[in-house]
């Protein structure tokens, strides 16, 4: 099995540095952030029900969508409530995780 633990520090420095300034050393790992999405969007983002599939989508698309939900420019039922709980750095880590797995 492919290892899917993304070192938190790497994601934190590279992504958070670009988007929100200083890296957050205590940010959750990309795996922990993304794994919780699986509960609705399916394991590795492969949905088996009515929720959209995330697997196979581009990193930039996932990040743009999540930020759109967060800012309210993307229409949704529940995602606007959920996306508001994530920093831009966390959104970037989630997008990276799905794009790489």
């Amino acid at each position: 099995m492919k290892s899917f633990v993304i070192p938190a520090a790497v994601v934190g420095i590279t992504v958070a540095g670009l988007l929100t300034g200083p890296a957050q050393a205590d940010m959750a790992s990309g795996a922990v952030l993304a794994n919780t999405c699986f509960s609705c969007h399916g394991t590795d983002g492969k949905s088996v029900g009515d929720m959209p599939t995330i697997a196979g989508k581009k990193e930039s698309f996932i990040a743009k969508k999540l930020k759109g939900f967060k800012m309210g420019s993307e229409d949704s039922t529940v995602m606007k409530r959920i996306a508001k709980g994530f920093t831009d750095a966390e959104i970037a880590a989630i997008a990276k995780f799905f794009a790489k797995n």
């Binding site: 609705c40 009515d50 929720m51 529940v78």
Partner: peptide, 16 residues
């Protein structure tokens, strides 16, 4: 939509 997503949630989480 939320009823469809309720079923979608159940199917995805139980499969996960």
């Amino acid at each position: 939509k939320e009823a469809n997503y309720a079923r979608g949630w159940y199917e995805s989480i139980s499969n996960d």
